[in-house]
């Protein structure tokens, strides 16, 4: 069972590696940012798998922090995009 969980976490890690291509290529800032956001979701899943595999409940707290705060960076990103559009339209 534990082997299955660690293998699953490894697969998730591999998807992060594959996703790096999208962060690197873009083409828009939103592509890069959304990709980094999806890494966060992947990381939460990997942490939960590791918490089960090694029976370490504190790892669920780490996953919960990532889950709760995922929206913060994205909100700041949207704020900048909104201000940018506003100033461009106003000019």
């Amino acid at each position: 069972m534990s082997t299955f969980l660690v293998v699953s976490a490894l697969v998730l890690l591999a998807t992060i590696g594959a996703g790096l291509v999208r962060v690197s290529r873009g083409p828009t800032a939103a592509d890069r940012m959304l990709c980094a956001q999806l890494f966060g979701t992947t990381g939460v899943a990997a942490l939960l798998l590791l918490a089960e595999a090694y029976d370490r409940p504190p790892l669920r707290d780490v996953a919960l922090i990532f889950a709760i705060l995922a929206a913060l960076v994205l909100t700041v990103f949207v704020k900048h995009a909104a201000i940018h559009r506003h100033s461009r339209d106003g000019a």
Binding site: V23, S24, A36, G43, L47, L59
Partner: peptide, 25 residues
Amino acid sequence: LFTSIAFFIAFGLVMALAWVRLQAP
């Protein structure tokens, strides 16, 4: 610069996984 930041955010995430594996929750 923006791409750097996206990479750095991902770096923080993987770093957290590394601390987990180093038994430092």
